[in-house]
Design a binder for these strands. Structure first.
Lengths: 341, 341
DNA sequence: CTGAAAGCGCTAACAG
DNA sequence: CTGTTAGCGCTTTCAG
């Protein structure tokens, strides 16, 4: 299939007997131009259904007005919300967005960066894959002075702006809530330990424990690989414990939901036998039975802040010095935990 | 913030004392080139960390190897799955993807098309917004011979390939299932009547009724505007009916879930008082209580088929004549309906 | 086997 | 106010 012909400035110029530069000027509403010729040109352009070739324009002005976005998984509701926020606010400022997903692999993350850079995007918004434990590709971006920032899944060693949630604070709040609703032995189900959020949320968990004078018990921290199978395994392990926890805080909602489902099948009641809480506030969290207590992370807002900061840097409204933007989370109490007294 | 300098072929040429065309040939592994010079060039390119400028390349060969995708809503799990399928398979064939969302508005749909076309994408994959009831922008694409196809939210009057689900068949199956599990009065809760899927699924619903010799009762078709408020209103109306249905098939899962939630609050039991079924198989459908009987639509697969067909057309492996690809759906029986006897 | 030259569509000095 | 010219980075004839 071959694309049909696109009208160019040259053709308008020929038809009107003027030069291409005049066309160019007329179409960008240059002041130094006779109003009449301008009018003639604009009308003719419309009549011929002229559409500028952004490729040529970008090549010429060496700016594409396009940003690249890399997320681990587009089908995750949270990342989809981020993208939505990024796109809306990029468009608002005249920018387009190219979205890629790394499918949680370092290899694709690198490949995505390569093609986005080759496509001459003006900047990049990146959320790291789970696999990413080495950062040459990011340092390379940094060294080549390609503007980018990290959001949500960040690394703190790269001298670049990042947008994160107050993960520690959110985890602290939910753990505190579990304790205040009567839990004496609160467990934390973490993801792989090298993940940024695994660490941060554990810090919040530990912080809450210590605040209530509870000694952290290593038996009350479990690690899931975050697959459904892994989550089910953890659910089983907890059920098998001689001295079960009475409250379980899971690093992310899907873990909590898998555990909830497993427990249901085993006849374990939530929250009476054990209370359960998650993190993220996925749509599913609201509809499971019982509805899941969790911590809301406004993804759209994160996307908006991230893209706004990057664009501010690009057009000089913000300093190039890296900053860290931290969004607050909100505890969403539901029925998977007991009520406050 | 200014982007750092990017290495160009010119610079490699100067450093090596050869011409730019030689660099170009070496980098695309042209056979008519001395192996030694080729090797020297490739090594130098790597050393200098050369990255081709896709913009310049695309302008020259008038092909971008980029496809544009427009979906109504990126945060919908179904569309996110489609995008995922599109992206994976586009990448596999050396294409990039630019994703846009119309936010269910005609205006943004048009604007998205305009910028994607201006960006010289090689083709477009479009799923129409709910608002789209006029098709000039698509006919324009058609007249300008820009390759595109429609998927899921399609219009049948545009002479262009489309990829859809067998909506009628899916609706037929689920209605039949409701009848076979004992429902005598099955209701259909539709979306706005001009929507393609509203019509198709209604056809399937009516087909099943007639097959069982049941006369369609206009009181057993309700229309929701698909907002949560609208859905709740419908739930209330059903509850208020003197002669309630005993089975309700909703056009999409969110409607069913909102109704389920409303009914729960009113003390109506599902499926004993009324059975309930949806369509799409959203992640939430599996976790509500009771789990929702629904019809699965493999979004990833749809994306894959759509992009594969478009790329086949682009590189001549498939005819340019429009075809209609219809994917089958799968009934997913769960506990929101009674069991088969 | 390699180089020179033209040109993709556009913008931006520089002249007039 | 408008045209001429050069060139963004790359590919591709056409010569040699």
């Amino acid at each position: 299939m071959k694309k049909g012909h696109q009208v160019t400035m040259k053709e308008i110029a020929k038809k009107l007997g003027v030069s291409v530069s005049t066309i160019s000027r007329a179409l960008k509403d240059s002041p130094e131009l006779h109003p009449d010729t301008k009018k003639r040109i604009v009308e003719m352009a419309k009549e011929m259904n002229y559409q500028p070739n952004l490729l040529a324009q970008s090549l010429r002005i060496s700016r594409t007005n396009t940003l690249g976005v890399i997320v681990p998984e587009i089908t995750s509701h949270f990342f989809a919300s981020c993208i939505s926020g990024i796109q809306d606010h990029a468009n608002k400022r005249g920018y387009n967005v190219m979205i890629c997903q790394s499918n949680e692999t370092l290899e694709l993350e690198k490949a995505n960066i390569r093609t986005l850079v080759a496509s001459q995007v003006d900047g990049l918004l990146i959320s790291l894959s789970r696999e990413t434990n080495q950062y040459d590709h990011l340092l390379d971006l940094y060294n080549r002075e390609i503007p980018f920032l990290l959001f949500d899944r960040v690394n703190e060693d790269i001298p670049v702006s990042r947008v994160t949630f107050n993960d520690e604070g959110g985890a602290y709040e939910v753990t505190k809530y579990l304790i205040k609703t009567g839990c004496k032995r609160v467990m934390y189900v973490s993801g792989p330990e090298d993940l940024y959020i695994s660490k941060k949320r554990k810090e919040g968990y530990l912080h809450a424990l210590s605040e209530f004078g509870i000694t952290a018990d290593p038996a009350l921290v479990k690690i899931s690989d975050l697959t459904t199978e892994g989550n089910i395994k953890v659910a089983q392990e907890i059920a098998d414990m001689e001295n079960r926890p009475d409250g379980v805080f899971c690093m992310i909602d899907p873990v909590a939901i898998d555990i909830l489902t497993s427990w249901k099948a085993m006849g374990i009641k939530v929250p009476t036998d054990m209370a359960l809480a998650g993190f993220t506030n996925n749509p599913t969290a609201a509809v499971v039975e019982p509805p899941l207590t969790t911590v809301a992370q406004p993804g759209y807002e994160m996307g908006k802040l991230a893209v706004t900061h990057l664009l501010d840097q690009l057009d000089g409204q913000a300093s190039d010095d890296p900053i860290s933007i931290v969004l607050e989370t909100t505890l969403v109490p539901r029925q998977s935990t007991k009520a406050l007294q």
